[in-house]
């Protein structure tokens, strides 16, 4: 399975997801600000070069991150973690990737994108005997524009909207807009951020939450965010966000956590599926 994981990392790094390309093209067509338009044009050209030449679409090839959905009866559970780590080492050499794993105190770069807790592997268990690996290398610039707001529950939905819009305003051009904003509401601090990350990256652009109320909130936040006029790369324009995705959990009566995760236009993802017979597919 290591070969396929290496290939999935390469696919994520060099071929921008189709839904993102489509959203960027539409944004380019719509854009009325000449400054923002130069940036969208450069991004689309860059995406094409990356795909054609099999080059990483961004020099920040991200912190290697995997979200796993693993069946309770998946037979290769024991091999999964070591396969992911080995795949990251190989991908770093073969694609190649920028070594992005640094010791926080000693400033030493491990050189192969691995280290304590890295690659970051997020495990979720589910029914069944198969496993899905979401390969989502995450860039540092947009990750810096994450936010956690522990609001007073009394501020309600208005308070949530304000927090999100003010956050996007404060981020400005720094997270490489146009971005995809993930908002996680409720749970605890960590769950709010995890939900936000999944909403931002795993859900395709244009797909709305299955509950109408949440879908409406997404639509409203999307429209408000694009009225800010920050534009592509913060140079001004009509498209600051490609989409806003919201997910929620029940909350403690005393807390209202709002986690915000920002994904840059380089919305990298690929998927590996492994069945109980060991058949591995990059989807």
């Amino acid at each position: 399975m290591i070969d396929e994981i290496v290939y999935a990392i390469k696919k994520a790094e060099t071929q921008l997801s189709e839904d993102t390309v489509k959203a960027l093209k539409e944004a380019y067509e719509r854009e009325t600000n000449p400054m923002g338009k130069t940036q969208l044009e450069a991004i689309l050209k860059n995406v094409e070069v990356a795909r054609k030449e099999s080059l990483p679409m961004c020099q920040d090839t991200g912190l290697q991150t995997f979200f796993l959905e693993v069946g309770y009866d998946f037979p290769y559970m024991r091999e999964l973690k070591s396969a992911l780590v080995e795949a990251v080492r190989r991908a770093t050499r073969e694609i190649p990737l920028r070594p992005n794993a640094v010791h926080p105190f000693l400033h030493k770069n491990s050189g192969d994108n691995t280290g304590r807790f890295v690659p970051y592997i997020h495990w979720e268990l589910k029914e069944g005997d198969d496993a899905t690996i979401h390969v989502i290398p995450k860039g540092g610039g947009s990750e810096n524009m994450s936010g956690l707001y522990m609001l007073s529950p009394g501020v309600g939905i208005k308070g949530i909207k304000k927090a999100v819009i003010e956050h996007i305003f404060k981020s400005g051009g720094k997270p490489c807009p146009p971005t995809i904003i993930g908002v996680g509401i409720g749970g605890g601090a960590d769950l709010a951020l995890t939900l936000a990350k999944k909403a931002a990256i795993l859900r395709p652009i244009g797909v709305r939450h299955e509950e109408d109320f949440v879908a409406q909130l997404e639509e409203e936040l999307y429209e408000m965010a694009n009225k800010l006029g920050i534009g592509a790369m913060g140079l001004g324009g009509d498209t600051t966000v490609l989409d806003v995705h919201v997910e929620y959990a029940y909350r403690h009566p005393a807390t209202l956590p709002v986690g915000i995760v920002t994904q840059c236009w380089a919305n990298r993802r690929a998927k590996v599926h492994i069945d109980a017979n060991g058949k591995v597919e990059v989807v």
Binding site: V47, C58, Q59, C176, M233, A266
Partner: peptide
């Protein structure tokens, strides 16, 4: 001057 963020492949070309 701003160079478009993330455009690593275009720059490499």
């Amino acid at each position: 001057a701003a160079y478009t963020g993330g455009c690593g492949a275009l720059a490499a070309e």
